[in-house]
Simulated scan of single mutants.
Amino acid sequence: MTDTEASDLIRTNYLDTSRKTVWADLGAGSGTFTRALAGLLQPGSTIYAIDTDKKALKTIPNLRHQVKIETYVADFIRDELPLPKIDGFLMANSLHYVSDQIAFLEKMSGYLMEVNDLLIIEYDTDTPNAPWVPYPVSYRSLTNLVERIGYQTIHKLRERDSIYGNATLYSALATRRNIR
Rank of each mutant, 00 (worst) to 15 (best):
R35Y: 05
I47P: 05
R35E: 13
T17S: 13
K85Y: 10
I50Y: 03
S94I: 05
I50E: 02
R78Y: 13
S99Y: 11
A56W: 06
Y111F: 13
Y48A: 07
L90S: 10
R64S: 14
L90C: 11
T17I: 15
K20Q: 15
Y111G: 07
M91G: 00
V98C: 07
Q42F: 14
L26R: 01
D75E: 05
R19E: 12
G110I: 08
K55E: 15
L40C: 10
R35S: 09
G39T: 03
G31H: 02
M91W: 03
P61I: 04
A92T: 07
H65P: 00
K68N: 11
K58V: 00
W23I: 08
F89R: 07
G110W: 09
A74F: 06
G31Q: 02
F104W: 13
M91C: 12
A92K: 10
Q101L: 04
S109M: 14
F76I: 01
L83T: 02
A92C: 10
L112S: 03
G29L: 11
E80N: 14
H96S: 07
Y48H: 15
L57R: 03
N93L: 15
M91D: 01
V67D: 04
G39C: 03
A56R: 11
I86S: 04
N116A: 13
S99P: 10
L105K: 02
N62I: 03
I77V: 15
S45E: 09
M91A: 10
K58I: 00
D117L: 04
G44S: 13
A38G: 15
R19W: 01
P61V: 11
Y48V: 02
M113I: 07
T21K: 14
F89K: 05
G44C: 12
T21Y: 04
N116I: 03
D25F: 10
I47F: 03
Y97A: 11
A74Y: 08
M91V: 12
F104V: 04
Q42P: 00
I50K: 02
G110S: 09
N116M: 09
F89Q: 06
D79I: 10
G44K: 12
D75G: 03
F76A: 01
Y97N: 12
A36I: 01
E70T: 10
Q101F: 03
R19P: 00
V22F: 02
K107P: 00
L40R: 13
T71A: 08
L40H: 11
E106F: 00
L41Y: 07
L90P: 01
